[in-house]
Amino acid sequence: MTHAGGYIADARIRAAEWLPWVFAALCYFAAPSYLTLGSYILTMIIFALSLDLILGYGGIITLGHSAYFGTGAYVAGILALRLTGEPLLGLLAGTLGAGLLGLFTGLVILRTRGLALLMLTLAITSLCYEVANRATRLTGGADGLGGFSIRPILGLFSFDMFGKTAYLYCLVILFASWWLVRRLVYSPFGASLTGVRENNVRMHAIGAPVYQRRVVAYTISAALAGLAGALLTQTTQFVGLNVLGFELSGELIVMLVLGGVGRIYGAFVGPLVYLVAQDYLAKRFPEYWYFGIGAMLVLVVMFARGGILGIIDAGIARLRRGS
């Protein structure tokens, strides 16, 4: 696996790294009827970036990352319903709420590893789901939370029925998230996360506060997941229980793995390919779709651990050697 970051990496933004943004801008003009799907993809890319931070870089395997996504979604929704539909405030609240939950749960569960950790992430998500399901007065329970409206962004850009504003809003937030994650990955902190993942024993032996690093990474990741959740709430003006579901965590892992774990752009490619394919196939051939997803996971694990980007990397390397 190749990883970005470290002390001899060139941290400047390469030309190719602007491609996704050009592509996203082109989509805005070329596919106006797909903007709703586009917004969802952009949101999921933020969510995938947040997972990549702890899974790909930190090596923390979690089956429960939707806990933080869902928390952000519900915080933003409840805020909009009860207090104010101010969008940026909603994003901030969702991010902070999920970040706090991430901090507290991280402090507690990151003392363990292996099966216990896996189980704890799962149990926490299930718990959040159960709470949201039962606290109907606050969350709307199984009916979901709706009936709120989001004010114009900065008082200027109101959400339109074609999803244009929503798309651009998501794009800007994604850009900011990408920039932050990229900074983090190339920083000494990012390097030390790689160290924790690569060799925990050695990390202790060089005097690194491993537990603390993992908690910090976990908190940042949770906050970012919350941001994505809040964004989903605002662009769809609805929160359903599924934002806290184990299925969403599972789907997210699939997307990230498909794109390539431990590389920033894996989190871009995975959700794009997965969600576009899902849009085409899932409704028409649901059984085959799920079978295909499963088979893809098995194949990736057996033959292509770097995902799509890994395959492309290998292809380029072969071409170079060939010429």
């Binding site: 896996l118 699939v254 997803i293 499963g294 088979a295 098995v298 694990v301 057996m302």
Partner: peptide, 11 residues
């Protein structure tokens, strides 16, 4: 984990 999740999806 990934492999067995894949098996679940398929089944």
């Amino acid at each position: 984990v990934l492999f067995t999740i894949g098996l679940i999806f398929m089944s």
